[in-house]
Design a protein around this nucleic acid. Structure first.
Lengths: 338, 338
DNA sequence: GCAATTATTTCAAACGTTTGAAATGTAGTT
DNA sequence: AACTACATTTCAAACGTTTGAAATAATTGC
């Protein structure tokens, strides 16, 4: 129950020296006498002096806070990406405030305003599904605070910094992987067409086919959103033609893939154990499935996060000009299970 | 590209009035003339004035930040609990800084020190597996900053505020649920004995048996940690005696249960589809399993988080004395699937 | 028309740091 | 002894806000 908070002034009084000497001693200024430094540091330790960040922030015009806005924390992609951000942020003396938009534009705007008031030194953001207008995010750049968009980003907007998973390359690799295992009939189960990288993934698939002389068949392509019913009807259409039966499947995202596998299993599809599946995600849960996918497309979220924070810190330090818009792509990797 | 930041002083100069008038106008002081208020607020809006939180914090001796330390964000229990915290914190004007310890004591200490420097107004913490010494957390209370321990907590330490899942009640209900479905041979697969609530859960199990006149058999109890091999050997021991074959299973946590189910399925256990399972967790993933558990013990993490933040805010506001240690229990609920 | 109110605005200090400039102290040189 | 040259410490302003007290302006009553 220290009633008087332990401040520099308090230490100074105890030690009968000036506040600035104490400050400089603690910050290891070369002009301060060694013995003085020792005395100060010892006293600071004994009295559990903890510098007041608000005061420092005010003086330095820096909050040492990085804001992150993302849709939610239930998707392991995002929580894993946070890990990458946190690591590097902490190393560089930044704290991280995470704010979930729950894919709600109104909440995203609130989060943005809150982080603006907190005078974050930089912002990393994965926009909500419904973000069309960027005024709430543009505020930051207008105040000179750099913003890095990651994963989800305004595809039409070129004037922003982006760090993205290389979803084209991931889907290409996955398709190539299946081709190399001898598959000729590879189905593609795509995601919602509104999501900006849906198209990139499809291109990865189709380019892999083309580059390896595997004929493309539009019967083997279907789209779904995250709704189970939709996924099932998409799957039905993929496996509709007995003349053109897929032996492998590339899926937009693992939960969708799991629904697909489950359905195929439930109908006792004749070739079920010949079908090899692969999807974006690499969920830790895979080991609990009875019929796991043969491989996963690992999106390396930690690396996406790390690239985002690295870019952001360069922008904060003005090593890169805030208007010299950067685009970083993080490659995916096919992980074979079992 | 505003070179001069928009501060109260800046507004004051523009409006040719004093800084304090501007401040009071923005804070809607009754002594300020209505017309003046209008002018100030308009100007503030037009120039996108955003109050500097560091300055306010310094003045008010409050950071408006709540710190959370938890083991990791990959466990949905924790991410869901954050949701509960965030909601109520935001409503009360607090930001939340989340820090992961990754179950590493060293990281936990670092996080604690970082949050202390940030002068959080309160701390919510789920301690790491290895936390025995609490010096780094006691610092907060010594500075008058309230700490609420949640979920994971120092069981031997009575002198702290706690919010816990009522894990006894949850396990009791689950066992009761299985008894009500006619089971007489209910196996119990417990978790690591070091974890403080392992014992409570076992007690819930055993009390439910006793209260319903179901005989207890020590053959039907085994323990495992989160290691798959251990789980399998535990399961083997539970199903070892043909004379005493379980028809139902209560498991400490869902991932453990999933391993168990998978194993039983893989060995084609004769009674496999008669065995009814239930575990703590209620993972959204359950729908993807081919042989899902019949029910889950929902721990209501959002509610745990909400209770923690509510208690913390009462402590911050001194509605409850910091030394009047509180213990809040949050009930579990059995959720039947399908 | 002047004091007495009341309404409104401004002053000034404070919150806890940092930091360049100024002041003081201590040797070393001549 | 006087001077220079360092070494070390202190001064004082600043960061952007809040807030009680003091000052000023406007209104009322007589």
């Amino acid at each position: 129950m220290n009633n008087t908070p332990v401040t520099l002034k308090f230490l100074a009084e105890k030690l009968k020296m000036s506040v600035s000497t104490v400050s400089k001693a603690l910050n290891n200024y070369p002009t301060i006498n060694e013995y003085t430094k020792q005395r100060v540091q010892e006293m600071a330790r004994d009295l559990h002096f903890t510098p007041n960040k608000s005061a420092i922030n005010l003086k330095e015009k820096k909050s040492h806070i990085i804001g992150i806005i993302l849709p939610n924390l239930l998707d392991h992609f995002f929580t894993r990406s946070i890990y990458g951000v946190e690591q590097f942020a902490t190393q560089n003396g930044y704290n991280v405030i995470i704010s979930q938009s729950h894919d709600d534009l109104e909440k995203e705007i609130q989060s943005a305003n809150m982080l603006l008031r907190s005078r974050v030194d930089g912002l990393i953001v994965a926009i909500s599904k419904h973000t069309q207008d960027f005024a709430h995010l543009d505020q930051f750049e207008n105040m000179g605070i750099p913003v890095v968009y990651y994963t989800r980003n305004p595809s039409f907007n070129l004037s922003c910094h982006k760090v993205l998973g290389n979803t084209f390359q991931g889907c290409y690799q996955a398709t190539k992987f299946l081709i190399d295992r001898g598959h000729k009939k590879i189905a593609y189960l795509g995601g919602p067409k509104m999501i900006n990288f849906t198209h990139d993934r499809f291109n990865g698939y189709i380019n892999a086919l083309k580059d390896n002389q595997v004929p493309f068949s539009s019967e083997l392509v279907a789209y779904t959103d995250f709704d189970k019913e939709n996924t099932i009807s998409a799957i039905k259409s993929l496996f509709a033609n007995p003349e053109n039966m897929p032996t492998a499947l590339v899926a937009f995202k693992e939960p969708i893939l799991f629904d697909a596998i489950k359905y195929l299993r439930s109908i006792n599809h004749p070739n079920f154990n010949k079908i090899e599946c692969i999807g974006f995600g690499n969920t830790s849960f895979i080991s609990y499935l009875d019929s796991p996918p043969i491989a996963s497309i690992e999106e390396n979220p930690e690396s996406v996060g790390e690239n985002a924070i690295k870019l952001l810190i360069q922008l904060i330090n003005k090593e890169i000009d805030i208007h010299n818009y950067q685009k970083v792509m993080v490659d995916c990797k096919v992980i074979v299970h079992g």
